[in-house]
Design a protein around this nucleic acid. Structure first.
Length: 465
RNA sequence: UCCUCAGUAGCUCAAUGGUAGAGCAUUCGGCUGUUAACCGAAGGGUUGUAGGUUCGAAUCCUACCUGAGGAGCCA
């Protein structure tokens, strides 16, 4: 294996004179009269290591196998480069081809491919410069998230992937079953979920929030960071059927604290990734989003704009624009509205709060006006909603009344017995939010399609890799 | 799921009813401490699939498949 200090990233920063072994995959080879140049990369760096191989050092049949995509080990000496473009290069002493990649068949060429062309090549696209940069940012973002919360004393908690709560209509769910569906179909009878593995109907989780509340009422500040599933037939550049979500949940926390945390969170993530991945971001900015750094600096620059839903609607009404969808108090904000607010009118992240209770989930805390709930959405340019959160209803009687209101829509009071009991035993005001990890990735990398910020995207009709 | 657009060589694209082409990639040859290397040549196609219109279809029509963008749902 490659040991610390021996990644291509490390070798590129090493002083000439060291005897080293580099391992990786060939980006391209150029031939001189007496010498071959090999661009080698192990995924650790946006810059390749240039390997210099003297003519005759290895047999011609071996040189012929050093083609784009081939896997090599090269042992030799780091030397100051004679050419431009790199400080050091590796002068090969021995070279081993582990796996050739027949250039007649290998689908990747050394020049630029479309992202759409690469999508069906899920097994190879990670070797490209673009996906190298994107997935290094992904790693740095995950680390930044943990660091932010760990530094604040939050407990990292794990909520179940298999869930029995058919959570408040947060989208269609994937059903999980161990029943023999062929047999069920043949029998002509409806499936008996009492006979299923868990003795009840179960689904893949659409949110760990309700369980996170349990843990927040024991550890005060907690966060989840795990996979989440939506079976919606969504075909957009912003939706996945399987994605990662971060859900902090805080006791002794109201909507104001919730907003403060969300803002500090986004700023910290941008700051950390800018610090950790600048060369990767420069690559992505150059090829995909010239405004990338400008967009990121807007997050750091000043406070986020904070407006109420009521103010937002008023702003939309006096914008002088004709909207495809109505902008009346009580209607949900549409994509076009959110985009106008954050991209055109305010031109920076916006937190919209206190939405009408009818358009928000049952667990959000009712405000004193009885018309709105203590909800917040954080909108950022280009992405739209990146965070959604709320202060939770901690008053047992109010929550129970809301659940009963929704009984007509199929909400079962019994299923929420434990959620209600949390309000009877040591309840306290608490709040939290959810951030889509891949949405944040899109913002940080400038990628326009969410399928290009996750190694193996799950979308309707796509689960190949 | 709805609306719009697209599908031609491995890749990026041209050809608008009349002989399917270019650049890159690939192969071969040449040149060169090269770095999106360069120069020359060659191979490479059932134009997404199935029908239809026409003397003749990549091109027009219908259905389907696949992809992209927009909408809804949301993170």
């Amino acid at each position: 294996m490659i040991l610390p200090g021996n990644y291509v990233r490390d070798l590129l920063r090493s002083a000439p004179g060291a005897a080293v072994t580099a391992r990786g995959w060939v980006k391209t080879r150029r031939d001189g009269k007496n010498v071959h140049f090999i661009q080698l990369n192990d995924g650790s760096s946006p810059t390749d290591l240039q390997v210099v191989l003297d003519e005759g050092l290895v047999a011609a049949e071996v040189v012929a196998k050093i083609t784009t995509g081939a896997c090599l080990s090269v042992e030799g000496e780091l030397v100051a480069s004679l050419g431009k473009g790199q400080a050091v290069e590796l002068k090969a002493r021995t070279l081993t081809v582990h796996g050739a990649a027949n250039p007649e068949d290998y689908p990747l060429q050394k020049k630029k491919h479309n992202l759409e062309t690469l999508r069906p090549l899920g097994h190879l696209r990670a070797r490209t410069n673009t996906f190298g940069a994107v997935f290094r940012v992904r790693n740095a973002l995950a680390r930044a998230i943990h660091k932010f919360f760990q530094d604040r004393g939050f407990l990292y908690v794990h909520t179940p992937v298999i869930s029995s709560s058919d959570a408040e209509g947060a989208g269609s769910m994937f059903q999980v079953t161990a029943l023999d569906l062929d047999q069920t179909a043949r029998s002509g009878e409806p499936p008996d979920f009492a006979q299923d593995f868990f003795g009840r109907r179960t689904f893949l989780t659409v949110s760990g929030q309700l369980e996170a509340e349990i843990l927040a009422l024991a550890f005060a500040n907690v966060y989840t960071f795990g996979p989440t599933f939506r079976a919606e037939n969504s075909n957009t550049p912003r939706h996945l059927a399987e994605f990662y979500m971060i859900e902090p949940e805080m006791a002794f926390c109201d909507l104001k604290d919730d907003q403060d945390l969300a803002e500090a969170f986004l700023k910290s993530l941008v700051e950390q990734v800018l610090g950790d991945c600048r060369p990767d971001l420069e690559f992505l900015s150059k090829w995909y989003e010239p405004e990338l750094f400008k967009n990121l600096e807007v997050v750091l620059a000043g406070g986020f704009e904070r407006i109420s839903y009521t103010e937002a609607v008023a702003l939309l009404q006096k914008s002088g624009r004709s909207w495809e969808f109505p902008t009346e108090w009580g209607c949900d904000l549409q994509s076009e509205h959110e985009r106008y607010l954050t991209e055109e009118l305010i031109k920076k992240p916006v937190i919209v709060t206190n939405y009408p209770r009818e358009i928000k989930a049952f667990y959000m805390r009712s405000n004193d006006d009885e018309k709105t709930v203590a909800a917040m959405d954080v909108l950022v340019p280009r992405i739209g909603e990146i965070i959604g959160g709320s202060q939770r209803e901690e008053r047992h009687d109010v929550l129970l009344a809301k659940i009963r209101e929704q009984a007509a829509r199929g909400m079962k009071e019994e299923a929420y017995w434990w959620y209600l009991e949390l309000r009877r035993f040591g309840g306290v005001e608490h709040a939290g939010f959810g951030m889509g990890f891949e949405r944040m990735m899109m913002y940080l990398t400038g990628m326009k399609n969410i399928r290009d910020v996750i190694p193996f995207p799950r979308t309707p009709g796509n689960a190949e890799f």
